[in-house]
Simulated assay, not measured.
Amino acid sequence: MATRRIRTAEDGDTALDVLSSAPIDAIVCDVMMPRMDGFTMIGLLRQMGNMTPTLIITAQDSMADKKTGFQKGTDDYMVKPINVNEMVWRVEALLRRSRIGMQHRSRIGNTEFDADTLSMHTEQGKGNIAEIQLPLKEFQLLFKLASSPNRFFTRRQIMEDIWESDGSDTHTLDVHISRLRERFRNNPDFEIVTIRGLGYKAVQRERA
């Protein structure tokens, strides 16, 4: 089993801050938290387009509570008292399913990405949906960012993943980001934002 680095948050508000400031692979979330409960937090994440795999842990074991959790967008549900080993197995399963799903298709707003064809379907002009073919590296870069809306990736992370580089020379990455920004500057669903001194993230735009 791979070693995992864990980030903690004492309440839902803090968790949202953590999720917006660092790439997170999976969320283990209690329902009863101060300031913002787990159901509300997950609902907000899904509304923002953040589809990070999520496991809810709670003492609430009624079918109504489980229904609420899944309707809000959780991927799995455990009732206390929990077995820690089982929790780890469930998180690993969520990560496997997430990797499989992200390998092929992704969506941000009404823009859809298909990794099998290196194409995307996006709105161009009011009500007009166009299919766009992208060069391989541009597609891989945009797919990575758009698959995790509002999560930033460092230049090093992107270079290692897309170019299999150690990240010491990021000029190529910056050029590709500039091309994507120019190509999709009027896209109604997303924009690419620079996190100064750190890297980039795709942010879902709010439609009027």
Rank of each mutant, 00 (worst) to 15 (best):
V28R: 00
T40M: 02
R90M: 02
L95R: 03
D25F: 07
R99K: 06
M32F: 03
S62R: 08
D61S: 14
P34V: 11
G69Y: 03
Q60V: 02
C29S: 06
I56T: 05
K72G: 11
W89C: 12
I56K: 00
S21N: 06
N50H: 12
I56A: 04
S21E: 08
I100K: 00
M41K: 04
R46I: 15
D76L: 02
I82G: 03
M78L: 13
G73V: 09
G38K: 11
I24S: 11
F39W: 15
Q47H: 15
R105E: 14
C29F: 00
R97P: 07
I100Q: 03
P81T: 01
K66Y: 05
G43L: 12
K67H: 15
S106G: 10
R107H: 05
L95M: 15
K80V: 01
Y77E: 10
I82C: 11
L45W: 08
M102L: 10
I42R: 00
S98Y: 07
K66V: 06
S21Q: 05
I108H: 14
D75E: 08
M32W: 01
K80R: 07
A22Q: 13
M87A: 08
G43E: 15
G49W: 11
S21C: 04
D61K: 01
R96N: 02
S106F: 02
Q47E: 15
I100H: 07
M41L: 15
L44Y: 14
M63W: 08
G38H: 10
P81K: 01
S62Q: 12
K67V: 13
I24Q: 10
G109M: 07
K80M: 07
M48V: 04
K72S: 15
T74V: 12
R97V: 06
I56L: 11
I100R: 02
Q71F: 11
R105A: 11
A22M: 09
I56Y: 00
M36H: 06
E86T: 11
F70H: 03
P23L: 10
G43T: 13
V28C: 06
R105M: 09
L55C: 02
M87V: 14
A93I: 06
F70W: 00
D61N: 05
Q103F: 01
V84R: 05
N83W: 06
S21L: 00
G109E: 07
D37Q: 07
A22T: 14
F70A: 04
V79N: 02
P34N: 06
A59K: 03
V31C: 12
